[in-house]
Amino acid sequence: MLKSLDPRVNRLNLPEQFEAPMASIEALDQFETYQAFVQLKEGKPFEHAGIVHAPNEEMAFLFAKEQYTRRGMICNALCVVKTESIMVSEITDNGQDVYDSFSGSFSEDDSASFEIFHLLKRGKQHKYIGNVKAKDFEDALLASKQLYPRTKPVYNVWVVRSEDILMSEPEDADLWNTLKEKQYREAIAYKAADKIKAFKEEQA
């Protein structure tokens, strides 16, 4: 048996040598990916935080909560969307507004509900802009173009059907109630200048 300095590893009873390489599996056990968006404070826009791998949306929510909102002093809400459910526009650069490339006019058909996210700077996060009612994805882009006037160029747009979003309920805001108590996760909790000073004085 492999002997480790880590008592946890010793409890795994690892063999000194594996007899064969790890069995390869036909299909890799890959889950779907979900995009997570976080709202730090009520009234602030949701921002894209990152992805999680999960087999379904409620597990994606469980995972995103700890991966993306376990630290910082505050968080108000979280939502997850299956990556597949996001319609992604073209991406532009160098001051070009991506909306300029959408031609046609909004159908005025408000039969479906969509949420719009903008990328305002390459390298930054997509931010939530608002809701539009439209016929389909393309139409939602046109509706958004009309509804949300822009002062700065938008480089990329994500469009999601509202029904495809799993969002924390307002009463779930208490999930983040004790964040500010978890100071041990923050750099600010580790001050020791006094100790160094005392030590130096003692040495001198």
Binding site: F31, T33, P55, T83, I86, Q125
Partner: peptide, 17 residues
């Protein structure tokens, strides 16, 4: 665990960002 959670119809999609 992963095998049990893998619904047969789920499909891996490259993440966006």
């Amino acid at each position: 665990v992963r095998q049990a959670l893998l619904a047969p119809k789920s499909k891996y999609v490259t993440p966006l960002a």
